[in-house]
Write a protein that binds this DNA or RNA. Structure first.
Lengths: 125, 125, 125, 125
DNA sequence: GTGGTCTAGACCACT
DNA sequence: GTGGTCTAGACCACA
């Protein structure tokens, strides 16, 4: 179970924030394999966003095979099959980090600042 | 002087890439106070984008008082008196981290993955 | 809600006239915190200007943190925490006065003329 | 004789600043009828601006019959003939002041702030 | 030559 | 439906 939270000022679109929080929930163990997620309707009401926004998030996670939807029953955490080589993953990570630090640096932050912030908030809320 | 480069695949808008590279140039010392930037036309041709795209980037930096323009003369690195409060700085850091992790998640990485990578390479190499 | 009006003869760019009217609306209390502004399209049609012109005005106010926009939802009056330093305020006042007197001079008026008029009517009626 | 000064940051174009200072000089009595002005060349060097910029200023004042140029001799303060009715002048002044205060107000200034600034600097320097 | 503004129209992303 | 970005091309103001 997740305590979803949306930040309209973050610049990150709502649907993406929902996706991130589900992914994070899985990564952190808050969400377990097979666990049922809130219905789109319930989550939309809870977060005070449009139904389509939640639907979009669930759909994208479905495409990534992270969620599985059973018509009329609900949406569940699925089995994520990682089929990228470790080297490819690591290269990608490096390239992302490089680009990111270049932006952070231009705003006057260094690696330590960033690591500390990530440790504290995990880039959330 | 900067060697500007645009990546159309990054998803980051052109004008924002230009902004980031100028900020980075200043932070890294490549661009010095009072130095003249390429003319909007020259940069537009070089990057093969429209004039307005470059103008938009310069304009935003001018509003932020990072650049100064003198009509008929050119655009210059301005007096960045770094008059940003600690709170604003921290907000900026948070927003950068959030956006970054949002991208990292979408590639299947976790806060831990990122922190480890940053510790190892500092976002370099 | 504002009754926007543009004067093509004033020499002041359209997008700046829009900015000034929004700022004035906020200062005068016509626009309240959190209130939604007209959509860019609606305002563009109403003022008979191009979409981009309105967008430009909204964007500048957003950079200045006077407006907040949420893609897909709309543009709103933001939290103007008036975080301007006294020096910046004074600089702004000076720059406004300079620009103003420049216009007044061009019509043949003198600082004394202007001060007297302001004392009499306070720029009203 | 005037001690000309240009402020690149004011936003007021150079040629207009020159015009203003000459008009102000006349209004304040620093420049007397028939007095000779610096040559365009001399003033351009002194102010470190392009020759065309000074020429443009002198030419506009000539058109307004405030200056008179004698080929090969120099430029002189001419006789300003005011041929606008007092009422028209006053109406114009009022309309300028109204528009101006509306802008000043939107930036958080009131009539007193403006009057004080004008008294101190006369909208200059 | 410089930058500033504006239009018309397109396509995309988000709610 | 909302705003965001970009292009192509025009005309103006300033140095």
């Amino acid at each position: 179970m997740i305590n979803f939270k949306l930040d309209p000022k973050s610049g990150v679109p709502f649907y993406r924030q929902i996706i991130d929080q589900i992914r994070y929930g899985i990564a952190s163990g808050d969400l377990k394999l097979g666990e049922q997620l809130p219905t789109v309707r319930a989550l939309a009401v809870q977060l005070k966003v449009n139904l389509n926004t939640v639907t979009k998030a669930y759909k994208e996670l479905e495409i990534q095979k992270i969620l599985e939807t059973q018509q009329g029953t609900g949406t569940f955490i699925g089995s994520l099959t990682v089929n990228i080589s470790e080297k490819e993953k690591h290269d990608k990570l490096k390239s992302i980090c490089r680009e990111f630090m270049s932006i952070a640096y231009s705003y006057g932050f260094d690696v330590e600042d960033v690591i500390q912030e990530l440790k504290q908030n995990g880039g959330r809320s």
